[in-house]
Design a protein around this nucleic acid. Structure first.
Lengths: 333, 333
DNA sequence: GATTTAATTGAAAACGTTTTCAGATTGCCG
DNA sequence: CGGCAATCTGAAAACGTTTTCAATTAAATC
């Protein structure tokens, strides 16, 4: 009673050719006489034959599927990257298996392994804290892996990012130039290299160039959530900060709303610059000034890079830096 | 030079048992003597054997992978659903292949077919305008499909939603009770059943109960984007609307900001209620009152339903309605 | 200890493709 | 029209599992 699945063999019989020939026309192999090609194509049409990608994957050792590991799709930043990834994946005939890791190292390792067991042709990984254990798992496989919008200081994985230190440095400099003596640095977990090594470095460099002493009371390590942001106003006031460089848009939105709710005027009394330029920056009032990152493109370029790696094509630059920008909106003077 | 992949056969040899036995222990089959189980397990450990899911899929005709078709992950509404889906998928040992359709019917059909060719065990579909063509494709396959947060008036696919007509009716009634004689209905494309058939119906019913004549000048069909929302203020004022029931959060945020930018006070001069209760509602000022939908749960329940369908378990209710709520925030009086 | 029954195991056939290699056909040239 | 190269085609062996069925071994019964 089962709906009969029709196989390449059925087509071969019906068209009175061999499986090999059918396989050839399905795969667009040139070595088949136009007449036979037509004959086979007709039978395929008539029988409504659809190749079984699993069998194909087993025989060819390619699944045209790539794994995508992301902390949380629900976060606009990652959703944008994911969209870029999917679009160019589609363009190159790949599909993506998307998994949320919650930035949990154990979970990351686990899903990495299930992705590998599913024989994905490549993986794009997002998440900035790469534990030694995870790094080892990365090394163990020869399936290509690229980091998207994520940095690993210690590893040597291909990656695509922007120049976080330069971007932060530039924005903090602007803040200082506008007269802010005490600018806070509000970031996600510092053990993530992107924060602890790069952005913080940019912050420090800007301070140094301006001859301002680094004060660790001004750096606030958070969990990157909106909620946390809303709670930060008192602490920020307590250290006499008059501006903040924030590393996440939702977090920044939280801070800004916390300020507004406490009747601190943004930007008059407190300036805020955020980092990801998700569409949230425009939706909030005042609109948030931001470092602009080509989010979609970071995803897109990552995936493009991955396709090259999967095909053993030469890549000129393993660690791509895309251009960033500075978007002045209403949360800065 | 290729990294040798080790197969079930290698561990069989090494453990001096048959492949069948190895397969049994890998799959937790009870019929194997504890001693042999241990022996095999040890060899697996020693050789670092990982089962090849593709081969397994071919032999067993199950891939433990489900397809997820979504208009755009970058939209918070769908991202939330997707997250719910992935979480329960993981819980039941499935992975998801995530594809963006842009609500484009051709694209939907195309990805549906590639998902099927990849032999997914099931599909959860999001997107409200289901063309006749797509409906036919749905019918052609015996792979189970469930609609998540999406309705198809004409088809008979399993689905999980909330009671959109009741929810809208209730909110519009509240608006009217508070003295609004002219409440606008701002929605996405009306040819999507969720808008054209359900929500609009709730709107009309509320009007009718209140003895107010339906005026189609008050219904605004849009494309559901933030940008469009920001442009709507003049038109809304032109028809003397004093409140709006909006079917999408980003759209609503746009409208609200458009109002604010034109110095129309929300909620004093214009009340706004939105529909999806994404976290955006809290981030915007004033915070938006909303119909609350258990977004994550809609995804989660869809996936759970799908697991039952995939296992041929009986399901009590093919079309699940989850409870909705009404969240009063600051965009209404 | 001989049977009978239950618990373990293994051999081999799927699963639906791709791919290699050799054989068959065709086209072209003098 | 013979011969050689170029073009097409097919047989059969992978690919790495699961699963069926029969055979073997162990346990239980009297």
């Amino acid at each position: 009673m089962d709906k009969q699945t029709i196989t390449i063999y059925d087509v071969a019989r019906e068209a009175s050719v061999s499986m090999a020939t059918v396989s050839r026309v399905v795969n667009g192999n040139a070595n088949v006489k136009p007449a036979t090609r037509k004959k086979v194509l007709d039978v395929i049409e008539k029988l409504d034959y659809r190749p079984n990608a699993v069998a194909r994957g087993l025989a060819s050792k390619k699944t045209t599927t790539v794994g995508v590991i992301v902390p949380d799709v629900t976060n606009m930043y990652f959703a944008s990257l994911a969209r870029g990834i999917d679009d160019v994946a589609t363009m190159y005939k790949y599909n993506i298996i998307l998994t949320n890791s919650d930035s949990n190292s154990e979970k990351e390792i686990k899903v990495l392994n299930t992705l590998l067991s599913k024989q994905v042709d490549g993986i794009v990984f997002m998440g900035n804290e790469i534990t030694e254990k995870l790094r080892e798992e990365f090394k163990r496989t020869k399936t290509p892996i690229v980091l998207a919008g994520s940095v690993d200081d210690a590893g040597d994985n291909p990656s695509v990012n922007i120049d976080y230190v330069a971007a932060v440095q530039e924005e903090v400099k602007n803040l200082i130039d506008r007269g802010n003596k005490r600018v806070a640095f509000v970031c996600g977990p510092l053990d993530q290299a992107i924060n602890g090594k790069y952005r913080l470095k940019g912050y420090k460099q800007a301070l140094k160039s301006a001859g301002i002493a680094y004060d660790d009371k001004l750096v606030f390590e958070t969990d990157d959530t909106y909620k946390t942001g809303t709670l930060l106003q008192p602490a920020l006031m307590a250290v006499n900060a008059t501006a903040a460089m924030v590393t996440d848009d939702e977090l920044a939105a939280g801070i800004m709303n916390g300020m507004s709710d406490a009747d601190v005027k943004v930007p008059e009394q407190f300036e805020i610059i955020t980092s990801n330029d998700t569409k949230l920056t425009e939706m909030v009032r005042p609109k948030m000034s931001s470092i602009t990152q080509p989010l979609y493109d970071i995803g897109a370029v990552s995936m493009r890079l991955l396709t090259k790696l999967m095909n053993n094509e030469p890549v000129d630059e393993k660690n791509v830096l895309l251009p960033y920008g500075l978007m002045k909106r209403e949360s800065t003077k």
